[in-house]
Simulated assay, not measured.
Amino acid sequence: MAPAAPAAPSAAVLEQIRALPKVSLHDHLDGGLRPATIVEIASATGHRLPTTDPEELREWFRTAADSGSLELYLETFAHTTAVMQDAESLARVAEETVLDLAADGVVWGELRYAPEQHLQRGLGLDQVVLAVEEGFRRGERLAAEQGHEVRVGTLVTAMRHADRGVEIAELALRHRDAGVVGFDIAGAEAGFPPARHREAFELLHRAEFPVTIHAGEAAGVDSVREAVQVCAAQRIGHGVRIVEDVEVLGGTDERGRPAARLGRTAAWLRDWRIPLELCPTSNVQTGAASSVAEHPVTLLKDLGFRVTVNPDNRLVSGTTLSREFALLVEQAGWSVADVERAGVSAAKSAFLPHEQRVALVERVLAGAGAGQGAPRHAV
């Protein structure tokens, strides 16, 4: 039985969180389209949708995602990728995504997608990347005209079940100075371990290019261990199941943190500050967590891991970054200080040069300080 969808947060808390400058590190471009855009492009291209009413389609995606299975969750993307098969549509989706992030208070967003999934109408891999980058830049300019300063970087993704890892890695490197800031692998995790693309990761490391890897979502600690120790990932996409390498002992330690015994992999992640790109709502929908209230992100935060909070797929999961934080405040007992700390962790973990990360941290802290109309311990 699929887990129940998280209840909506209160409007007051959501608006307070939305006003804060935020950093989003795990957001799939093909998982965050506007329903009206899908309907319009599908009508023009002849793609058949479950419904042509935008609001009904929005609800269809959210309901379909509440499956309790990563594999079933991923099936919803057949409709989003179908309308992202030409340069004009790709640029439009990218532009609208930037504007949607800006409206949610995101000041730095890293958006990921797999170029190999957008070749059905004759585009080449480089043409796909160029179209998306054109859309991102247009979105940044339009957002600035509307009074929102937002920047985005691209994470080029290879599908882990395919055999194009090296080719996609080379694609990322060709565009590394034109908007592409990192590399990822995504797709069904079980049965497709990170080391399957080891040659691609070795190429990227030799080129000194950042890597994040989906791991610890549908597969357990071994997947995270392989991503870090074999493939040398700088960040872990999701990583929620690293909690299986944590034994909670009860009570608190001398620092006031939950008393716990960490396995070697969990300890390595915490000791060496390897960021976890956690996505609470999505993890509940795919069965990686039982609820937002019990999501391991709170325990991992309290234990001192570098946790970041992310939306994963805004349309498919029916969420935004602000909503994710608001749910954690109302259902998991997070405070303003917790939200701020996770925001700083995300800024520190961005695939940006050091001085730009420092400036991003300062922006998150300045915005959080200015927006705290409530005491630090509560929103």
Rank of each mutant, 00 (worst) to 15 (best):
G179W: 05
F183Y: 04
D184T: 06
D184A: 00
A186S: 06
A186H: 01
A186N: 06
G187F: 02
E189K: 08
G191M: 07
F192W: 07
P194W: 08
A195H: 11
H197V: 12
H197M: 05
H197G: 05
R198M: 13
A200P: 00
L203S: 07
L203E: 11
L203H: 03
L203A: 03
L204R: 02
L204A: 02
H205T: 03
A207R: 04
A207Y: 13
F209G: 00
F209K: 13
P210A: 02
P210M: 00
T212I: 10
T212Y: 05
A219H: 12
G220Q: 13
V221T: 14
V221P: 07
S223T: 12
S223M: 06
S223K: 02
V224Y: 10
V224K: 05
V224W: 11
R225S: 11
E226C: 10
A227F: 06
V228A: 07
Q229R: 13
V230M: 10
V230C: 08
A233M: 07
I236A: 10
G237Y: 03
H238I: 11
H238D: 04
R241E: 08
V243H: 15
V243N: 06
E244P: 05
D245C: 13
V246A: 15
E247L: 14
V248T: 14
G251S: 12
T252E: 09
D253W: 08
R255F: 11
G256H: 05
G256W: 01
G256P: 03
R257S: 04
R257F: 09
P258T: 06
A259G: 08
A259L: 10
R261F: 11
R264M: 15
R264P: 15
R264V: 15
R264E: 15
T265P: 09
A266E: 06
A266P: 14
A266C: 14
A267C: 15
W268K: 09
L269N: 14
W272H: 14
W272Y: 14
R273G: 09
I274R: 04
I274E: 03
P275A: 03
L276F: 04
C279H: 05
C279D: 02
P280Y: 01
P280H: 02
T281F: 01
S282C: 06
N283L: 12
Q285T: 06
T286V: 03
T286N: 08
T286H: 09
T286W: 08
G287Y: 01
S290C: 12
S291M: 02
S291E: 01
V292D: 01
V292H: 01
E294Q: 12
H295A: 04
P296I: 02
V297P: 02
T298E: 09
T298Y: 00
T298Q: 10
L300D: 07
L300W: 11
